Amino acid sequence: MDIPVAATAPDSREVWDSLKRAIAHSSGFQRWLSEKHSAMKLEQPLDLDACVTAYLRQALETLAY
């Protein structure tokens, strides 16, 4: 009996949530977030999606050099 791949593969939201949690717990992200947070002196809670996206964008731009 063959199981369709789509039925067993996680959807993109599940993959993003898992990846986001892993990145958020990494020491590199924690250091980056600490630096950004203190530089901007933010008092409101941060949007984790936006922070991880910005972190990944900056990391990729740095690697592109």
Score class of each variant (00 low, 15 high):
Thr53Phe: 12
Ser27Cys: 04
Ile23His: 03
Phe29Gly: 00
Met40Ala: 03
Glu35Ala: 01
Ala50Asp: 10
Arg31Asn: 06
Asp47His: 09
Ser38Gly: 01
Lys36Gly: 00
Arg31Lys: 12
Leu19Ala: 06
Ala22Phe: 04
Gln30Glu: 11
Ser34Tyr: 07
Ser27Phe: 03
Ala39Arg: 04
Pro10Ala: 10
Val52Ile: 12
Lys41Glu: 13
Glu14Pro: 02
Tyr65Arg: 12
Arg21Phe: 06
Val52Asn: 06
Met1Lys: 15
Glu35Gly: 00
Arg21Met: 07
Ala22Ile: 04
Leu46Asp: 01
Leu48His: 03
Ser38Thr: 02
Pro4Met: 09
Ala50Cys: 04
Pro45Leu: 09
Thr53Met: 11
Asp2Cys: 08
Lys36Gln: 03
Val5Cys: 11
Lys20His: 05
Ser27Thr: 05
Gly28Ala: 04
Pro45His: 12
Val5Met: 13
Glu43Ser: 10
His37Lys: 14
Asp47Gly: 06
His37Pro: 02
Tyr65Gly: 05
Glu35His: 01
Ser38Glu: 11
Ser27Asp: 14
Asp49Thr: 02
Cys51Val: 00
Ala64Trp: 11
Leu19Ile: 02
Lys36Thr: 00
Arg21Ser: 11
Asp17Met: 07
Thr53Ile: 04
Glu14Phe: 10
Pro10Trp: 13
Ala50Phe: 03
Arg21Thr: 07
Ala54Leu: 08
Ser38Phe: 02
Leu33Arg: 01
Asp17Leu: 12
Gln44Leu: 04
Arg57Gln: 11
Val15Asp: 10
Glu35Val: 00
Leu33Val: 00
Ser12Val: 14
Lys41Arg: 13
Val5Gly: 05
Ala59Asp: 05
Leu19Tyr: 10
Glu61Ile: 01
Thr8Ala: 15
Trp16Arg: 05
Leu19Pro: 02
Asp47Cys: 08
Val15His: 08
Gln30His: 06
Leu46Ala: 03
Asp2Trp: 12
Leu46Gln: 08
Ser38His: 09
Ser18Asp: 11
Leu19Trp: 09
Pro4His: 11
Arg31Trp: 03
Leu48Gln: 08
Asp49Gly: 05
Ser26Trp: 07
Glu61Leu: 08
Thr62Leu: 11
Gly28Met: 02
Arg31Ile: 02
Arg57Asn: 09
His37Ala: 08
Thr62Lys: 14
Leu42Phe: 12
Thr62Asp: 08
Gly28Ser: 04
Ile3Leu: 15
Glu14Tyr: 09
Gln58Tyr: 05
Asp49Met: 06
Val15Asn: 10
Arg21Cys: 03
Val5Gln: 14
Asp17Phe: 03
Pro10Asp: 09
